[in-house]
Amino acid sequence: MIDPVLDRLRKTPEWLVLVVLGLVSLAAPFIMPGLVTQLAFLWLMVVFAQTWDVLGGQLGYNSFGNVIFFGIGCYATAVMQRDSGLPYFDALTLGLLLSALLALVAALVFGAALLGIRGHYFAIATLGLGIAAGELAAGWDYIGAGSGMSLPLFPGELGSRELFFYFVMLAIAAVCFLTLRWLYGTRFGLAMNAIRDDEDKAEAMGLHTTAIKTVAWAISAVFLGLAGGVAGNMLGFIDPRDVAFSGATFGVWMVLMAILGGKGTLWGPVIGAIVFHITKELFWTYLLGWQRVALGVLIVLIVLFFPQGIMGWLADRRRARAGGAA
């Protein structure tokens, strides 16, 4: 029953899908005015999954610490808004620029230090990096230490704040998607896949592997930094361990959503993020206190029984049908 629908979708030109999705996204907050914040978080999830997949799926470097760029973004914008003394929107704009810049610099520095480390060592090094950042932020008085930072009040009228940040987050997700779509189509995309498949061979074929890895990480860091700056304002409050450098929520969700949708594909992380976020919003409230247990169980189940993700499953299914027909 599902196959005809999938075939129809497969035959639809991508631009049409993008236009329809774009129109739906623009109309969504007016169709569902009660859900604007949840929808804005949906785009945040899409950014999370997509940016994780740049390294995790396309390059084969599984990072558990990407949340660090998000956290840097949260704080950079918040500090700019607190200390610059500029009007709200000027401070926000400058803050987001600072967020992107600091995340970029951080990716270049951490990339130089960590991207030579391979396999599970890289995964665990980045895990350590994310948690260390949260602990350090929780002790640093300048950014509010353990008690976090509150963000300035939005100057507009009631309800306009949610709408404003919805569109900003949508713009970040859309630009991120289009950037990655373009990136994966260039030779840079092929170079990333080559490194994923056999890094030593890629080096022996003359690819500038270190530069490629670092630039890839920097690209995802910029979008995470921007998303962090906006997310802090959406939430109105930044906690070092539970918001900015939240390895146990955002940090894990990124990985989970990308795997759920299908690692190493353009659409997989987007689909994974949408499925995960909707499922979470529908069922989370019924789990009263057991949410995190459920999250752990979900990780184990997906990793054990569905590691190829939705996109991988669809590809397998198509291959099986083609084989059956022939």
Binding site: A191, N193, R196, D197, K201, A204, L207, A211
Partner: peptide, 24 residues
């Protein structure tokens, strides 16, 4: 032999070109 297993033959070839050895 070492080739890129998850890429097609054409992709294997394209990323092996002399131009791919250039900067980012």
């Amino acid at each position: 032999t070492r080739i890129y297993g998850e890429m097609t033959c054409m992709e294997n070839m394209q990323i092996s070109s002399r131009a791919s050895q250039g900067n980012v």
